[in-house]
């Protein structure tokens, strides 16, 4: 059952490790990117003790999850779904579709960009600092946070897949992915910072708060059952809708030769 995903992961890492110098150069960039996300927080909290009910350390937890989300997008989403967009345009998608494995699995998880590992490490470091000052979470809270992280990743993955699927109908969607990246930048702050319809949008339509704020709230023991179930519902809806749209898109795909 797990044989195909594991084989895919091994080949992906091997392919990426061929370019060692580039891998190291990207390390510095990854660390800088992490510093860039955290820096405004240092400046804000130099002036005020709390923002929207979140202390500095609590906001750093959100930063940690945001960096992890960025690593997921840069490491898995971009290399794979970006290749789908190109594949549709030049007709190379055919080679993926003829393989005897579920197309969605292959399209989504065939490649890994290992440079994203640096951002993942930065995420762990920031999270570690925050937790060492807040005190360790209870096992229950840690489990809840993991569940929320999984649900948030699923929700955002569905959205990225959905945006990618539009390339089967419109050829130029590279920029649409860029736009989605810009919008999900809003997930870097605790969700309490936003109000009104922006908050609703960030937890449903562009559910980036589910992958950044919700796991942090779970770790802090602030997430009630209602919000947790909401997150799972959004994730399920996102996965189902994107799967259905992908199946339609593949049926609509007319390959390079036909």
């Amino acid at each position: 059952m797990l044989r195909v995903p594991l084989a895919l992961a091994r080949v992906a890492v091997m392919a990426a490790m061929q370019y060692r110098a580039s891998f190291l150069a990207e390390m510095a960039v990854g660390v800088l990117a992490a510093a860039g996300v955290a820096a405004p927080l240092f400046l804000v909290y130099a002036h005020v003790p709390a923002v929207a009910g979140w202390s500095f350390e609590e906001a750093l937890l959100v930063t940690a999850f945001f960096l992890a989300y960025n690593a997921f997008v840069a490491g898995i989403i971009e290399p794979n779904l970006g290749a789908v967009v190109d594949g549709v345009r030049v007709g190379q998608l055919d080679y993926m579709l003829i393989r005897p494995v579920d197309a969605q699995l292959l399209l989504s998880f065939q490649k890994v960009a290992p440079a994203a590992a640096w951002e993942l490490l930065a995420s762990l470091a920031v999270g570690g600092v925050a937790l060492s000052r807040l005190g360790p979470p209870t096992p229950m809270h840690a489990l809840a946070a993991l569940a929320m992280l999984g649900s948030g990743v699923a929700a955002t993955y569905g959205l990225w897949l959905l945006v990618t699927c539009t390339s089967f109908w419109f050829v130029r969607v590279d920029n649409l992915r860029f736009l989605l990246g810009a919008i999900t930048d809003a997930g870097r702050w605790p969700i309490g910072v936003y109000s009104g319809w922006v908050r609703i949008a960030l937890t449903t339509v562009v559910p980036v708060a589910l992958v950044t704020s919700y796991p942090a709230m779970a770790l802090l023991g602030r997430l009630d059952l209602e919000l947790a179930l909401g997150s799972v519902a959004v994730a399920a809806a996102s996965l189902i809708v994107s799967r259905l749209v992908l199946l339609r898109a593949l049926a609509h795909y007319t390959s390079a030769s036909s």
């Binding site: 804000v44 002036h47 923002v51 929207a52 920029n175 860029f178 736009l179 810009a182 919008i183 702050w189």
Partner: peptide
């Protein structure tokens, strides 16, 4: 259409505004 999307992507100042706006909710910062 492409150009409009590129321009719309430059919304990071608005994200920053959200943070500072929340920080100044209790009174001015500086």
């Amino acid at each position: 259409a492409e150009m409009i999307i590129w321009v719309l992507s430059a919304t990071l100042p608005l994200v920053m505004l959200a943070l500072w706006n929340a920080a100044a909710a209790g009174g001015p910062v500086g």
